[in-house]
Simulated assay, not measured.
Amino acid sequence: MTYKILCLSVFGGCLATATIAAPVDVFSEVDYTHAFEINSGSMPDGIVFSLAEVLERSSDASTDLDAPVTNVIDVPSGQVGELYTDPPTPYFDRRGIAETTPDNDHAARASYNVNILQVGGDSQAGLSIVSREVDNEGAAEVISTDGSVNGSGASDFSLRRVYGFENQGPGLVTFNIAGTFSAEVLAGFDGGAGTGFARSSLSYGLEIAPTDGVLVMHSATAPYLTDIEDSHQDAFVTELLDIGEDGFDFSASASVFGPGGPVDATYSGSFSYEFQFVMASGASFTLTDRFTQINAVDYIAPTTPVPLPASLPLLVVGICGLAGAARLRRKQA
């Protein structure tokens, strides 16, 4: 099999252009999208929007090839989003690491690609967000032509943002937040006699925390659909969706273990929702959008037995012969 190596859609190009005819391929991937819109794209009269807390973010990416000499390319990039440009400017945070041996026979990679597009409401009424779309990826992979080099890769990204909504008008205000979510979580191990694992995981939450005077109602606008493959004894998939008036909490993971292969574990799923709000004057709620994605792979090459010298059996026979002759002399004495 021939695999493209380290081609990261994150950057619209490749960190390396070589290909590897790779009998060993250990990979982990996540790819997901979450988008919601507030009141069909218009902040309701009387509702004051705010950024309730400081943005929380953490990330990392790393690779390790157990070879005397490796070449490493580490490409980070980022951009601050802008709500009120035309069109709105997306926020992105990206990093890709590729580590290869000089002959390109062995490679490890790790990457994350986070993209968030937010659209602002009426700027005359102050800062507000009327839609938000998160479109993210993460990956880690080890590939090798002969499986003789240990390797690992890992990436993770977490983000948490809290928004505030308060009814400062004189009467009741009714509006909705409608959204869609879809995700793919994949892991694969094709390592021959080598051992190791591949694991990918994703957790995503949209949390609604109302004060008194806020009525929240939830309805599913499309059912939760899943497609799971973990039929191999060394493949495992977990998934959970909890959704109701307080928002939703989603998680999924895919894990595979060597030796052997090919072994694949895959999850894909999607759902749609609508939350309806009825807010009394002076009432408020916070909306927390958070996610964590993790990718990790590890490959351990098989240990090659040290061959015995061809003359060793003759040497053993000779030693045994000498020992026998010595015992015979002792008996004759």
Rank of each mutant, 00 (worst) to 15 (best):
F27M: 06
V48T: 15
G41H: 07
F271E: 02
A183G: 10
Y112L: 03
A139Q: 13
A325I: 13
T174M: 04
A16P: 10
G13E: 09
Y299F: 15
L312H: 12
D135H: 08
D60R: 06
L65W: 03
S62G: 13
R329W: 10
I97C: 07
D135K: 06
M1H: 09
Y84D: 02
I177T: 07
M1I: 07
V54P: 03
P210Y: 01
G191C: 09
A140G: 10
A254N: 13
P262S: 10
A326T: 15
Y163F: 15
A222Q: 14
F197Y: 14
H106K: 09
C7Q: 11
M1Q: 08
D135A: 08
D103H: 01
I294D: 02
H218E: 10
D234H: 09
T33A: 06
G247H: 03
E53I: 05
S111F: 10
A220R: 10
L314P: 01
D122A: 12
L6W: 04
P223L: 06
G196W: 11
S182D: 14
G261I: 10
A296H: 14
L314E: 14
D64M: 13
T195P: 01
P76L: 11
N71I: 15
I129E: 03
V214C: 04
D289G: 09
Y84N: 03
G188D: 00
G196V: 03
L65F: 06
V26C: 02
L308I: 07
G205S: 13
N167Q: 03
F291R: 03
N295G: 11
S201M: 10
A22N: 12
V30F: 08
A52I: 04
G147A: 02
H34R: 12
V263I: 14
P68S: 08
V185A: 04
R327A: 15
S200I: 02
E239C: 04
I97S: 01
S50C: 02
